[in-house]
Design a protein around this nucleic acid. Structure first.
Lengths: 351, 351
DNA sequence: CTGAAAGCGCTAACAG
DNA sequence: CTGTTAGCGCTTTCAG
């Protein structure tokens, strides 16, 4: 293990100088710099994380974390809880504070200027020096920051990707792949000749459901020509889940050969229970996405849902913080721009 | 963040004394001890990991890691590589050395006394103070250590559990659950009425395949009464994989209704290719375990294998080291005796 | 039995 | 532009 001290001794300079060279801060005489870099290279210097970590508390790092707090989005609740726990247990010991900013989509639409102003104020006053933002509003927030002259704060997005200036990385799943995986499951369930109905609780323009459907269809084309999508039904606003159920029932009457139902965007999945209760339609295989509430787990366990595709919500909360910590505290740049979460298949036996 | 210093100040003693109390080393005046414990409690003292980590290098921790190096066990190759990388990247910076002990089952059977003696000698000379051992031989090695008067070295087992004295923890999957999961997949593929052939490359007494079959059968009883196991075939020694293929072909001729083949214990899976090539049997669904070689991945991707159940080999290499490090360097006891690896389902779309 | 001191590797702050 | 110093939190060692 070679330390900064070893380099300093060998180069005949002080540790401070070595530090300056290795972190490009301050000016150092060019020959010395060359020499130090060469020696560091030769010795194969690797900075010691424990040491860096201890010293990092001098930097007073404060990270802001914007999350969706709407109670109809339990998936984001899991992200939030994971992030909170990680912040307390792993980051606090390094002197890093994480400030959480709840964000409710419905409130926001009514009153977004207020929220934005509060946010800007908080970022300023709390001297936030890094941000984790749910992708959905990442682009917008970055604009707002820029308009207020605080454009240099490094960003990590999660759950949905956006092309934002200053973005360090994105953490989230590949939705198209998720759709392909759903198709693969449908094939497995039906000897490759499923008749699939796709239902989604959104207007069909959300990145997540849109790309899932794209992937599903691509997989049909490329691999399972016998699979058919008998119908797609998108709806952003249902008053009652029973309305949706009625729709689905009609869909199934129109297509009596339908044997797989794919819920491309999560609702509360109570639809699945309704389907199982109605005798007729009870042998259709149901594929969903995400598994966060106890109720959903139960449905997978008891076969109400046949298979579900998960995308590591915990990682979506934790990894962005880790990336930002590595960057701000340890000076380590992320290895990739897109940290893909794993797509795992859950059935009754491995929920 | 409350530190040892804070406690010392508040208790009117030195940091050394606090440290002694908190780690039960040396003697401390009873009243002082009481007081210190109370204050630590009140202040909610949490030792700082970064600090501990930095100081840990004074302890000169050396961990021995026994792994299966036989080249017909690529699964263990993955474990080894993961452990190696973790040792270099995460443990070395804390001054922890990991010494690896390869272990080849075939050599060993011929010449186990030599291996044992070498091992004992190495543990002594290299002053190993913690061991990670593949479960298969964990019990035996512990005996050997005891007979040689070095019984106090903490142990972590992986991949297979054994009831060993001095065991800190076990890291590995729940094989019975893996078998249940295989059954669930078979059900999914056949509308709950599979006719299953089970084939395993062992004598039927290995913990892994034995428990997988137990789980498979339990799941049939409890959940899928319509599923039948048409035949089980165990064989420890095949000269040629073509022999095994011949067996399987005969099995399928005996049971023309067989629609799922479950390979309970991994071989090289070339059997699957043979099955696909022979036209007749090509529409049987094949379920396997583990996914480590590129060739296996390819088979899942192209549908030669329909589904496979993985058990996180990387974690089996890394977690035991982490547990031992936490124990030896940071004084943290493992949270549980059994760290279960996740059972994940892989199909063509998420290999 | 207890306190004081040194040091793990690194960085920020200050003094030249 | 550069060296020195102090200190992050903890443990070990040595002196009393």
């Amino acid at each position: 293990m070679v330390t900064i001290k070893d380099i300093a001794k060998k180069a005949g300079v002080s540790r401070g100088t070595v530090d300056r060279v290795l972190h490009d801060r301050g000016k150092v005489a060019p020959e010395k710099e060359k020499k130090i870099r060469r020696i560091a290279q030769e010795l194969g210097y690797q900075p010691n994380i424990a040491g860096k970590g201890l010293a990092a508390r001098k930097k007073h790092i404060r990270i802001g974390f914007v999350y969706i707090s709407s109670d109809w989005a339990p998936f984001h609740g899991v992200i939030y809880e994971s992030a909170r726990q990680y912040a307390r247990q792993e980051l606090l010991p390094f002197g890093v504070e994480v400030h959480f900013f709840p964000f409710d989509l419905k409130d926001y639409e009514e009153n977004f200027r207020t929220w934005d102003q509060k946010f800007i104020k908080a970022v300023r006053e709390q001297r936030i020096n890094g941000l984790v933002v749910v992708g959905m509003i990442g682009g917008h927030l970055q604009q707002v920051l820029e308009q207020n002259g605080i454009a240099d704060i490094p960003f990590v997005l999660y759950n949905q990707n956006e092309d934002v200036k200053g973005k360090l990385a994105y953490v989230g799943c590949d939705y198209e792949r998720a759709g392909r995986l759903a198709c693969g499951l449908a094939a497995l369930m039906t000897k490759n000749k499923a008749h699939v109905g796709i239902v989604s609780l959104d207007d069909g323009n959300m990145q997540s459901s849109l790309n899932r459907v794209v992937g599903f269809e691509a997989e049909i084309r490329e691999r399972y020509p016998q699979i058919q999508i008998v119908e797609k039904y998108f709806t952003a606003n249902v008053e009652e889940m029973s309305e949706l159920f009625a729709e689905v029932q009609q869909m199934m009457e129109r297509h009596p050969d339908m044997d797989v139902l794919y819920l491309a965007n999560p609702g509360d999945y109570s639809l699945c229970q309704s389907i199982r209760r109605s005798g007729k339609t009870s042998d259709v295989r149901i594929i969903t996405n995400d598994l966060v509430t106890e109720c959903q787990r139960e449905m997978v366990k008891n076969g109400t849902i046949d298979a579900t595709i998960c995308q590591e919500p915990e990682k979506q909360g934790v990894k962005p913080l880790e990336i930002l910590f590595n960057y701000l505290a340890l000076g380590i740049l992320p290895e990739t721009e897109w940290y893909k979460t794993e797509l795992s298949v859950r059935i009754g036996q491995n929920v």
